Amino acid sequence: MPNIILDSVRGLQPVPIDDVFLKDRKIFLVGEVNDASCNDLIKQLLYMEAEDNTLPITLFINSPGGQVGSGLAVYDTIRLMKSPVTAVVTGIAASMGSIIMLACDEDKRLMLPSSKVMIHDCSWGHREMGGMKPFEIEQELRQLEQVNERLISIIAERTGNSVEDVSNVTMCDSYFNAEEAIEFGLASKVIDSECLGELMKRNAA
């Protein structure tokens, strides 16, 4: 993690740049959505919520997705918070990364000009089926279908599209550039220099 040098009463000190951003209520989801990354996000979100739930939080996302359960934990946390959270897609918000983005309100989903969003049906995962009985396989498939229905309902609700339309789109990996994401209801705005300047203003509690 890179450090920056700050001048304090103790003199010049190296400070992790993530700590500086956290103080300004800016956090990052970079890389895979998993237990570790999502636990860190939830801790940061709840810390800022406890500090001052009237101030905005900015979540920068560049993620290929990952674990459904971990991602839904972040989604639920953001939805329950009073602090207004803005998502900024800096590279790609794919799979569960897109679901986390959709936790933010419709007017608070921003994208850099070259960024993308990808949505699709959830997949089986990495569990081996060898040695499983037919009933056990049926149970696994039933659970997978239930999870997929939950994700489709989230996308439909948060984008304003019908469940049927979303189901048709998520049958395969569907990529959206910034303009296409806005048209589908996934995002609200492409960031320009003025918008970026507003986002980067210091707003620490």
Score class of each variant (00 low, 15 high):
Met1Ser: 14
Asn3Arg: 09
Ile5Lys: 15
Asp7Arg: 15
Val9Gly: 13
Arg10Ser: 14
Leu12Ala: 15
Gln13Ile: 14
Gln13Cys: 12
Ile17Asn: 15
Ile17Tyr: 15
Lys23Ser: 15
Val30Thr: 07
Glu32Val: 12
Val33Trp: 00
Val33Tyr: 00
Cys38Gln: 07
Asn39Gly: 07
Asp40Lys: 09
Asp40Ala: 10
Asp40Pro: 03
Leu41Glu: 06
Leu41Asn: 13
Lys43Met: 15
Leu46Phe: 06
Tyr47Pro: 07
Met48Leu: 13
Glu49Asp: 08
Glu49Trp: 04
Glu49Phe: 09
Ala50Glu: 13
Asp52Ile: 13
Leu55Trp: 07
Leu55Asp: 05
Pro56Gln: 04
Ile57Met: 12
Thr58Met: 02
Ile61Trp: 07
Asn62Trp: 00
Asn62Ile: 00
Gly65Thr: 03
Gly65Met: 01
Gly66Pro: 07
Gly69Glu: 14
Gly69Lys: 10
Arg79Gln: 09
Lys82Gly: 09
Lys82Met: 06
Ser83Met: 06
Ala87Ser: 15
Thr90Phe: 10
Ile92Cys: 01
Ser95Asp: 12
Ile99Leu: 11
Met101Val: 01
Leu102Ile: 09
Ala103Lys: 12
Asp105Phe: 13
Glu106Ala: 10
Asp107Phe: 09
Lys108Asp: 09
Lys108Arg: 14
Lys108Asn: 13
Pro113Leu: 08
Ser114Cys: 04
Lys116Pro: 05
Ile119Glu: 12
Ile119Tyr: 10
His120Val: 01
His120Cys: 05
Ser123Phe: 04
Ser123Tyr: 08
Trp124Phe: 05
Met132Val: 09
Met132Trp: 04
Leu144Val: 01
Leu144Trp: 02
Asn148Gln: 03
Ile152Ala: 02
Ile152Pro: 09
Ile154His: 00
Ile154Tyr: 00
Ile155Ser: 01
Ala156Trp: 06
Glu157Arg: 04
Gly160Asn: 03
Gly160Cys: 02
Ser167Lys: 02
Val169Asp: 01
Val169Asn: 01
Thr170Leu: 01
Asp173Pro: 00
Tyr175Lys: 11
Phe176Thr: 01
Phe176Gln: 00
Phe176Lys: 03
Asn177Trp: 00
Ala178Asp: 08
Glu180Ile: 02
Glu180Val: 02
Ala181Met: 03
Ile182Asn: 13
Glu183His: 11
Gly185Glu: 05
Gly185Asn: 08
Leu186His: 07
Ala187Phe: 04
Lys189Phe: 11
Val190Cys: 08
Asp192Cys: 04
Asp192Met: 07
Glu194Pro: 02
Glu194His: 10
Lys201Met: 12
Arg202Gly: 15
Ala204Gln: 12
Ala205Val: 14
